[in-house]
């Protein structure tokens, strides 16, 4: 149970670090020293590589956005590179009138919101309980949980279990089987162990608070960061879930967004004998709709991203504690 990283300082904010008398920037730039030639060369190479990596990551995403607004023929001829050409909303208009996408959208929204609520209700109290060191059975229970990260029953026994439980073709298959993610339990438990001072517990005990009272009144208000991180992990997981729909859902009205996307985006990919049938023109319009659908389907995450990205580091760093 030793920590991989220095857990004492890792989750502190820069302000806290400054207050604790630590240096703010752990970089190795030292102005009082003369830069050597090899250092300058190294700097240039580092900047170049980083710039290339950034472009390689951002450009495809930017291109999808630009192409969804552009004239599809111009996109196919390679005339669109940085800015949209022949701006048109025709693709989005077609998407707007496709009822399949909206059914998928509605389903996934329900599954994701309800699923994340159940996830948090089950995961967070459990993680708190397992963070109490005086609770001896926690070691056995942690082992029981961790073991499932490395070994499982596999696809078919799970499928047959869902069948016996009557979860096939039911919305609950999106919510119940994945209610606990062991990885998230470990992250939350590490957070409670390392970030909530033990003195608070002693004080709460003296004031006569029970475990539930201490958890609800003292710990939860101090844990908004971890709630945000774990809520985000779960929500993204639900939003991007394709596997559950593929295996357990046959009813089209219950299909989540990702499976609808698969039907639209990948159904007419290059399969022998099929590609030649479609005329170049309609192929291009199809591509434009695809670009638009990609943007529309990622919209909730794009909106959430700026608000939540400050929590990302925190979540992974807390999770860097061994289970």
């Amino acid at each position: 149970m030793e920590t991989v990283i220095n857990s004492k300082t890792a989750h502190m904010t820069p302000e806290q670090k400054a207050a604790a008398g630590m240096k703010r920037t752990p970089t190795n730039r030292h102005v009082h020293q003369k830069l050597t030639v090899s250092d300058t060369v190294a700097d240039v190479i580092i900047v170049l590589i980083l710039a290339l990596v950034l472009i390689a990551i951002i450009y495809p995403l930017w291109f999808v956005l630009v192409a969804s607004f552009s004239d599809p023929t111009a996109v196919a001829n390679g005339q669109v590179s940085l800015l949209p050409k022949g701006i048109t909303l025709a693709g989005y208009a077609k998407i707007f009138h496709d009822s399949r996408i909206w059914i998928g959208y509605r389903n996934t929204l329900i599954y994701a919101v309800l699923g994340t609520a159940v996830n948090l209700l089950v995961t967070i109290p459990c993680a708190f309980g397992l963070s109490r060191k005086e609770f001896r059975p926690r070691r056995v229970i942690m082992f029981l949980f961790t073991f499932t990260m490395f070994f499982g029953g596999g696809m078919i026994p799970s499928y047959l279990l869902m069948k016996q439980l009557g979860l096939l073709n039911s919305m609950w298959v999106f919510i119940l089987p994945g209610a606990v993610s062991v990885y998230n339990v470990i992250i939350a438990r590490s957070f409670f162990e390392s970030s909530i001072p033990e003195d608070l517990f002693d004080a709460a005990r003296i004031d006569g608070l029970s475990y539930w009272g201490y958890f609800l009144k003292i710990v939860l208000p101090l844990s908004s960061a971890i709630l945000a991180v774990i809520g985000l992990y779960y929500f993204v997981g639900h939003w991007n879930d394709y596997f559950t729909g593929l295996i357990y859902i046959r009813d089209q009205d219950l299909e989540p967004l990702q499976n609808v996307l698969q039907n639209i985006l990948l159904a007419n990919q290059t399969k022998p004998g099929m590609a030649q049938l479609t005329a170049a023109q309609s192929q291009n319009i199809g591509d434009q709709i695809k670009f638009g659908i990609i943007i529309v389907s990622a919209l909730p995450l794009i909106i959430l991203y700026p608000f939540l990205q400050k929590y990302f580091d925190k979540g992974v760093m807390i999770g860097a504690v061994k289970g």
């Binding site: 089950v122 499932t148 026994p157």
Partner: peptide, 16 residues
């Protein structure tokens, strides 16, 4: 606090 999670893990991980 932990029984709901234990129940889910037993049912959906250990039964398979």
């Amino acid at each position: 606090m932990i029984l709901p999670a234990v129940g889910f893990v037993l049912l959906f991980n250990y039964v398979p």
